[in-house]
Each structure stands twice: as structure tokens, then as C-alpha cells.
Simulated assay, not measured.
Amino acid sequence: MARRHLSSEEQALWSALTRSVWPLRPGSRPIDAPPALAVSAPPGLTPAPLRPTVPSPSRAPAATLDSTWERRIRSGTLVPDMAIDLHGHSLSAAHARLNQALATALSRDLRILLIVTGKPPKASGFGRDARRGAIRAEIGHWLETSAYADRIASVRLAHPRHGGEGALYVILRRKK
């Protein structure tokens, strides 16, 4: 099937549209402009002004913490200020509960949140446990896209005393 070329009016509309949308994730690949950008916009349609690019703050949790934190995590002497258990919740309920717990922890100036998600799924032969570990699979994405992501200093596996592979420590940054 042959590709249809855009008319000059369609090219102008496409150009105006691509200038008015912004990627959901900063740093993602911009949309390529159509080949003919010199076409003027149709009457009554003014192109959207270009937004200045502002670098987004680093939202990624730290890969390593200082030696005191590392030692406390490894030895199991870290004491969570608050803990939530997401077992038995649907994905949407667990997500809402996680956001509520983060908001509560931040409002109380707590630093260490223990989140019990359950152990990751074991490799099963015939897809028997396809739904097992759904919350565990989503928790990283939820924390990255949370409204509180910039307040998270690090996310770590919990010490066996606190649940091991079935739980996570979320270490929150201090208030500025």
C-alpha cells in the first residue's frame, strides 16, 4: 500500500500539534517533525509557544548510601519507623495504600519505611502462579512514579529479620 503524503494544511496542523505535546518521561525521544515545516498555519490556528527546557530534578534513589547506613542495613540493626503490609490487597488498593503510607511517613518526618510485599515468585513450570508476586513486580514502578519520588533516598531489600526478599526498606530524605 502506498503511503499518502500530507497536504500543506495537514502538515501545518501536525507541526502545531507536535509543538504542543510534551513527553511523559523527561529525556525520552522527541517526536520527529514532518518534512515540510515552512508551511504557514491555517487561519485561526496559532502555534503553541515552545516551552523552555528545564532539567528535571534527579528522582532516582541512590545506588549506595553512606557507610553507616550500609552497615546498619547489612547487620539488621536498622529499625523501621513505620511498616505496611501489602499482602492480600489488589494492585490498586496496594498502590493507594503505599501512597498513603508515604504521605504519612513524610508528614511525620519518619526516615525508614518497611514495606512488606511478599517474596518474589519462584520459577514455576506451567505458569501456575502467574499472578503471584504482582505487587512485588509493580512496587519499583510505583515508587519511581510516585509524587514523593524525589523524597526517596534509597530502596533496599530488607534484612531477613524484617522479611528479607519479601520486604523493602524505603529510606526517605530529610526535610530541606
Rank of each mutant, 00 (worst) to 15 (best):
R173E: 10
H89G: 00
R151V: 00
T104P: 00
R132I: 03
L157S: 14
L98A: 02
E70M: 10
A12S: 07
A149K: 08
D85C: 04
A60V: 14
P49E: 09
G163C: 05
A38V: 04
L78V: 14
A137Y: 13
Y169N: 01
G125I: 09
A63P: 04
A149E: 01
S154E: 02
L110M: 06
V155F: 04
A167S: 15
P34K: 11
R128C: 08
A137F: 11
R151L: 06
W69F: 12
P80K: 09
P61G: 09
R161K: 12
H159V: 05
A149F: 03
D85Q: 03
R128N: 15
R108T: 03
D109C: 07
A41T: 12
R174K: 10
R51S: 10
R51Y: 03
A134Q: 10
L106P: 00
M1E: 10
T53C: 03
L168C: 05
R108A: 05
H159R: 11
A123T: 08
S92P: 02
P120H: 11
R132V: 08
E138W: 12
V21C: 03
Q100Y: 07
A123C: 05
L37P: 02
R156V: 02
E10M: 04
R4M: 06
E144T: 09
A105R: 00
R29Q: 15
L113R: 03
D66Q: 11
H87L: 13
I115K: 01
R132H: 14
V39F: 08
A60E: 10
S15C: 10
R97N: 07
T68M: 08
R51F: 02
K176S: 13
A101S: 13
Q100W: 15
S90R: 13
H95V: 00
L157Y: 13
A16V: 08
K119E: 14
G127V: 06
W69L: 09
R71I: 04
W142G: 02
L110N: 03
V54Y: 09
P55H: 15
L65W: 05
R51W: 09
R173M: 06
A94S: 15
W142L: 11
W22D: 01
P160H: 06
I152V: 14
P55Y: 07
E144D: 14
R59H: 11
D66Y: 10
V170W: 00
P61T: 14
E10A: 14
L157Q: 11
I84D: 00
E70V: 09
L50H: 13
L106T: 02
R132F: 08
R19Q: 14
I31L: 05
R51I: 00
E9V: 06
A105M: 02
Q11G: 10
R108E: 12
A96E: 12
I171N: 00
P34M: 05
E9P: 00
L17D: 01
G164I: 11
H95C: 12
T77H: 07
A63C: 07
G118K: 05
A149P: 00
L168Q: 11
A33E: 06
D129V: 04
R156I: 03
P121S: 11
A2M: 12
P49F: 08
R72L: 09
R111E: 09
V79I: 05
S15W: 04
